Lab assay of single mutants.
Amino acid sequence: HNLTITQGKLFFHYNPKLCLSEIHKMEEVSGTKGRQERNDIALKTNGDQASCENELLKFSYIRTSFDKILLRWEPYWPPDFRDLLGFMLFYKEAPYQNVTEFDGQDACGSNSWTVVDIDPPLRSNDPKSQNHPGWLMRGLKPWTQYAIFVKTLVTFSDERRTYGAKSDIIYVQTDATNPSVPLDPISVSNSSSQIILKWKPPSDPNGNITHYLVFWERQAEDSELFELDYCLKGLKLPSRTWSPPFESEDSQKHNQSEYEDSAGECCSCPKTDSQILKELEESSFRKTFEDYLHNVVFVPRKTSSGTGAEDPRPSRKRRSLGDVGNVTVAVPTVAAFPNTSSTSVPTSPEEHRPFEKVVNKESLVISGLRHFTGYRIELQACNQDTPEERCSVAAYVSARTMPEAKADDIVGPVTHEIFENNVVHLMWQEPKEPNGLIVLYEVSYRRYGDEELHLCVSRKHFALERGCRLRGLSPGNYSVRIRATSLAGNGSWTEPTYFYVTDYLDVPSNIA
C-alpha cells in the first residue's frame, strides 16, 4: 500500500525493539523526510534493546553428524571492536523451508527459537588472519532439518551509529543413524509349514526405512522333555500350542467401542483428552525405555581390526524358502538304536541362519518350516543398504507352526516275539517326523474274553527296548493296539495285532 503524509511529521519514542533503520525507511515511504526535528525521533529510546544489523554474515563451514552440527561463519568486528559482546545463534526444527525470524513471537518477546549466546573469538592483530567464530550444536535429532541463523550482539553506541551483522536463515539436516526397533511384532501360524509375521514401523526411523531383515531359527525343545518319565503317576503330560491366527481386521481397528449394538453396526467412541494424553505418555515412556535398553543392555560386537582377528559373527547367506525346513542338525536320541526319531534339535552355532529381506511392506510369510516346531524370529529395521547396512537392534518374537495331521501315527506293522515265561516283546517304529517329539506310547492289549488293559511306555523305555515287553501273560489269544502321544496330543491307534500265548508248562520236552 502507498502511504503519503502531505502535512505533519513523524514522532517515535520509547520503541526499544524498533531499529532506527526501520524508522528511516518509514520517513522515505511516507514522504516526511526532512520535516522531523532532532528530538522527534529519539536516538536513545528507539532500538536500544534490539540488534540492528546492516551487514550480512556468511557461514564459512558446515559439518553434520547424526546428532551434531558444527558451524563456522566469517569474522565480524565493528569499528570499535570492544562493542562486540558476542553472537546469538538461533535454531529450531523446520520440516519445511518457510521459516521466518519472527515465527511464534508474542507480545512478551518470546519466540519459538532456541538461542545460544556465543563469546567472540580472540581478536588477531592481523586483519587478514582473524579467527572464524563458530559453535557445535549438540543433542539434535537424527535425520531432522533445522533452520539456523546467527547475528551479532553489540553494545549501545553513544554516537548512535547503527552497526551489526546478521546471516540469512539456512537449512541444515542432520545425518541418518540406526533406527529404533520395529514396533509390535506379531507372529502367527496359518499352516503346519508357515508363519505369518506382521509389525509396525519404528517410532524413530532416523532416516528413510529402506528394508527390513527377518531372521528365523528353529528352537530346540526343553531338555526336561527328553529326561522326564511322563508315565509316572502324578506327572502331567506336557503340551505345546501353536500360535493362533490373526483376529479379523475389524476387531483390530483402534479407537473402536468394545460393545456392539445388537441391531447392527455401531460407531466408534472418540477417545477423551485424558485417554489420548495417557497414550502419549505411555508411548514416550516406551521410547525412553527402549533407548535405555539399547544403550545399557546391548553391547556392540567388536569388529575385526587390522591384526587379522576374525569377526566372530557368522556370515549372512541367503537361502531359498524351500530350504528352511531342514535348518537344524538332527541327532538321534540314543545312538545305539537307529530307529528312534531325530527330534532332539541342538543347533550348531556355526550354522548360517536363513533370512529374508523385506522391502516396502511390514509383513512376511515364512514358508518351508517344520510342522509343530518353535521358531525364534528376529526382526531388524534398516535405513541404508549400501555401502553397508545400517540397521536397528533386533526385536524378537516366537511362534510355533501348526501340527501336521497323521504325523504322530505309527507307520509300519507292530511285530512281536514270544519268549519263555510268557513274555512277549512288542516292537514298532517311532514316527519319523512327529509333531514336536514323542513323549510316550500307549499300549492297549486284551486277552479274548477279558477286559482291555493299558500300559504306558516312556520315551526312554522305548529307546532301550525298541518297544516294550509284556510279562506274566496268561495263555490265550491276544490283540494289541499302540498309539503315540506327542507334544500336540495323541496320534491314531494302530491296526490290531494278534498273537497267541501258550502255557509254557505244557511245552513238550526233548528229553527222552
Rank of each mutant, 00 (worst) to 15 (best):
H352N: 04
W216T: 05
N435S: 03
V324N: 12
H454N: 04
A220R: 07
V214F: 09
G308H: 07
E247L: 11
P338N: 05
I438Q: 02
G207S: 11
K432A: 12
R353N: 13
E279D: 12
P431R: 01
G476Q: 00
F226V: 08
S479K: 02
E430H: 13
V324T: 05
C269E: 12
I410S: 07
S315L: 10
I366M: 11
Y448F: 13
V299Q: 12
S392N: 01
F285E: 15
E258M: 06
K460G: 05
P312Y: 13
S458V: 03
L228G: 14
G325P: 07
G436S: 02
A336K: 12
L280N: 13
N421R: 13
H454Q: 12
A336D: 14
P338H: 08
G472Y: 09
D506Q: 15
K361R: 05
S344R: 14
D311P: 07
A309M: 07
P475Q: 11
S283V: 05
S239G: 03
Q380G: 06
L379D: 00
N383C: 11
D506Y: 12
L225M: 11
P354G: 12
G472L: 09
T502P: 08
S243F: 08
T347N: 04
V329Y: 11
K236I: 04
T340P: 13
S320Q: 08
D291G: 15
E281V: 09
D323H: 13
R483S: 03
K317G: 08
S268P: 14
T288F: 03
G325F: 11
V480L: 06
E217K: 14
N490C: 11
K361H: 05
L277N: 14
S304P: 10
D385K: 14
Y445C: 04
E227H: 09
C267W: 02
R466S: 13
H254S: 15
L464R: 11
E282H: 02
E388F: 06
T340E: 14
V297Q: 15
I482W: 00
S203A: 14
R301P: 14
E260I: 12
K317P: 07
C269F: 12
G489V: 09
S257D: 05
R447P: 11
F226P: 09
V331F: 10
R481M: 09
Q275R: 08
E281H: 15
V424N: 00
T288Q: 11
F499W: 02
R466C: 15
F355A: 13
T272W: 05
R400C: 06
L455H: 11
K361M: 08
A395E: 09
E465N: 09
T485E: 15
L235F: 08
E282C: 10
E452P: 15
R376L: 07
P300Y: 03
R313A: 12
P508R: 15
F246K: 11
A463T: 13
Y504A: 08
E217H: 14
N255R: 12
P238R: 06
P387M: 14
E362S: 09
C266N: 12
L440M: 08
V345L: 13
Y498F: 08
N383A: 09
K361F: 12
L235R: 09
S486D: 01
Q219Y: 15
D503H: 03
K233Y: 12
S248W: 06
V334W: 13
D273L: 09
C267R: 00
H416R: 05
A488F: 07
P403T: 10
D311H: 14
R483D: 00
R319H: 11
I418S: 10
T343R: 06
K406A: 14
R400S: 09
T333G: 14
E420P: 13
Y500C: 14
D323S: 06
T485L: 14
E433P: 02
E350K: 06
D261V: 15
I276W: 09
I438Y: 02
N383V: 09
L470S: 01
L453A: 02
E389M: 15
Q256C: 10
G368S: 09
H416P: 10
L232A: 10
P431Q: 01
V297C: 04
K406R: 06
D450Q: 14
D222K: 12
I482Y: 01
Q380N: 13
L487N: 07
Q380T: 15
Q275Y: 08
K287V: 14
L369Q: 03
N421I: 05
A394I: 15
N435K: 00
N206H: 10
E351F: 06
V297Y: 12
R353L: 13
R400G: 06
E221P: 06
K460P: 10
Y212F: 15
N490I: 02
C391P: 02
D222Q: 03
Q256V: 09
P475L: 04
T415W: 03
I482C: 03
G368Q: 08
A488N: 13
S320V: 11
W493C: 01
S239I: 07
S248H: 03
V297R: 12
E378A: 12
P270Y: 07
Y259P: 08
R447T: 07
P300I: 06
W493L: 03
F289A: 05
T373C: 02
V397R: 09
E420K: 13
D409F: 11
